[in-house]
């Protein structure tokens, strides 16, 4: 690109003529991510109280046997979901704004940190591999739905407990979050230029429309799934610790 005279005078952080509460949204996002991320980290470090009967915390799914690993298994198990969320197009917006303050809000002055390179330099260039994190997250859904199936069985008999619904909600919202992914939207049909040229392309157009409809709510799914996963772990943890008893609904 040709360089041109640039009017943007050097600004200081937070300088703006905006009159609205521009700091509120990044503040809430930072608080939410710190709270939920903090809980998930704490829970992952415990290594105990992650199952009760056939209920399994989503933070510890799939159950793995790794005798060579001295720490909590969740620290291994959570690598794919963490990669998926940390490279997610929505979460990128969220943490670039809330934590990197780059920008903290639209039309608000930034910190002067030298030459800006965006997602072209290490480590942010790795965001381009989000689709591979999607593949892993997709694989993880099989384990999580297996846990849902397990949660419907009590002593060999079909049943529904409050925990069943909690785990179902967690996996359901995670599924919506995964299938509303921007990379998936591209892979399923967005990469095509012509939707009507072949029968396969016409089929992919239908899939692309469906994923596009989900994609509009990707941010909502990102938050709801994060809350529901943490809550499912919290619920199983309390059951396992004997704080209260599961309610059998059926």
């Amino acid at each position: 690109m040709a360089e041109t005279a640039h009017a943007a005078s050097r600004e200081h952080f937070g300088s703006t003529s905006r009159r609205d509460s521009w700091w509120l949204a990044p503040g809430l996002v930072a608080a939410g991510l710190l709270l939920l991320g903090g809980y998930a980290t704490w829970a992952a470090l415990q290594g105990t109280h992650f199952e009760f009967g056939r209920y399994l915390s989503p933070l510890y799914s799939p159950k793995i046997a790794a005798p060579w690993w001295p720490l909590s298994p969740a620290l291994l198990i959570l690598i794919p979901p963490l990669l998926f969320r940390s490279t997610c197009y929505y979460y990128r917006k969220a943490y670039y704004r809330a934590f990197f303050l780059d920008p903290v809000a639209c039309a608000v002055g930034e910190l002067n940190r030298g030459k800006y390179t965006g997602e072209t330099g290490f480590p942010f260039v790795l965001q381009n591999l989000h689709r591979f994190a999607f593949y892993l997250a997709f694989l993880w859904l099989f384990f999580l739905w297996h846990d849902v199936w397990d949660a419907f069985w009590f002593d060999g008999r079909f049943g529904v407990g409050l925990g069943t619904l909690v785990i179902l909600a967690s996996t359901g919202t995670l599924t919506l979050y995964t299938f509303s992914c921007h990379s998936f939207r591209h892979l399923v049909g967005g990469k095509l230029d012509c939707f009507s040229c072949t029968a396969a392309a016409r089929g992919r157009h239908g899939a692309w429309l469906g994923v596009s409809a989900l994609n509009e709510h990707h941010m909502g799914f990102a938050w709801i799934s994060l809350v529901s996963v943490c809550f499912a772990d919290f619920y199983v943890r309390l059951l396992s610790m004997g704080v209260f008893h599961d309610v059998r609904l059926l």
Binding site: R92, K93, Y96, E119, T120, N128, H186
Partner: peptide, 29 residues
Amino acid sequence: GLCNITKCCTEVCPEDITITDNAIIPLKE
């Protein structure tokens, strides 16, 4: 690659073009 998809462009567009989700991210992909 310099775009870090913070969506300010989408927020101000008077024609309500979903710039980031429908143009920039698909191009990034």
